[in-house]
Amino acid sequence: MNQLIELKRVTTKKDKPDLSSLGFGKHFTDHMFVMEYDKEKGWHDPRITPYEPLVLDPAAAVFHYGQAIFEGLKAYRTSDNRVLLFRPSKNIHRLNVSSERMSMPPLDEELVLEAVQQLIDLERDWIPTKEGTSLYIRPFVIATESCLGVKPALQYKFMIILSPVGAYYANQLQPVRIFVEEDYVRAVRGGVGAVKTGGNYAASLQAQLKAEKLGYDQVLWLDGVEKKYVEEVGSMNIFFKIKGEVFTPALNGSILGGITRDSVIEMLRSWNVPVHERRITIQEVYEAYQRGEIEEVFGTGTAAVISPVGELSWNDERMIINNFETGELSMKIYQEMTDIQLGRIPDPYQWTVEV
């Protein structure tokens, strides 16, 4: 790292929210990290400043052409008052993968990690202590050049904001109901489905609203060409335990490579549980269900960590998974993952970074 991070502290701190009603992404800390880019200077003026609204030109490219990427990771407070990050370098590297696909300038990953750590250290007293809570970290980049023209922008803003959060779902390990979407599609190979850009999520909202009206929590997307291969859930990667073996869709260019997904695969293999990354049809899932071979289905993601699936609805057929109960493997993964994140057990994978 060759740039010093300037610090400007707030003069008056905010009141902390009630830990019993945090929700997710509703409250924000006193400070944020900001850095700008232009073609002549590159990335410059890294600084931590008071959290405040942005001022952008109405012609800023992000509003018109969608150059925007983001990440999500968490900081956890341990019982002995340490602060741990979970695989932050993976998220920062994925930010650059997204940046390349969206024709945006790459970030200095060492500088970004230092910025995350300095900001977390400054806002240490915002990290909640209640079981199931954490401090959510949202790095993002937007195009700020004022120009109406379809081209990569010449100016950008990189920011990191922090939010104390509760569990993503109200009942963390309560199995969720998933609707398999067959009309709308999320992404196709060659598109931007494998990167974290805002447009992916905006495009998913209509299907999510449809699923919620039908009484479901999330959407399971099929591939955008043949509409028969399982891809991912709205905010999670998906896993199926069938006859003692675990299957998850292979990363094919239209599926986001989740950090939690990667961690779960490594964990399962260390336990000698067979894991297969390959194309999986929804018909194959249904036939395995009909034969009584599906033992568990669960989603993985930073927000929820592990989310057991209790029901899949496809083609007017309801598949009830494991009697709508949290499976033994899902529970074991969740327990070990959160124990590592919270520093309750040794980290054999060297995933955590202490701030």
Rank of each mutant, 00 (worst) to 15 (best):
I280K: 06
E284Y: 08
G310M: 10
G215Y: 12
T300D: 07
E245M: 15
S263A: 05
P274R: 15
G215L: 13
G258Q: 05
E266H: 13
P308A: 06
W314Y: 15
P308F: 08
V230P: 02
E226S: 10
E232T: 00
D217M: 02
L268E: 03
E317K: 14
N237A: 05
Y229K: 10
V305D: 01
E317N: 13
I242H: 04
T260H: 03
M319C: 06
M267D: 04
D262A: 11
G292Q: 07
R279W: 13
E212S: 07
M236Y: 10
K228L: 10
E226D: 14
M236R: 01
S263M: 00
P274L: 15
G292R: 05
I282D: 13
A304W: 01
Y289K: 09
V230C: 04
R279A: 15
N272R: 06
Q290H: 04
L312D: 02
D262E: 09
R278T: 15
E266C: 11
G310Y: 12
E284H: 08
I280N: 10
E277D: 08
E212R: 07
V275H: 02
E231H: 02
V219G: 06
I242R: 08
H276C: 00
E231R: 04
Y289R: 10
G299A: 08
R261F: 03
S263N: 03
N322E: 14
A288S: 14
V233P: 03
I321W: 07
S235L: 09
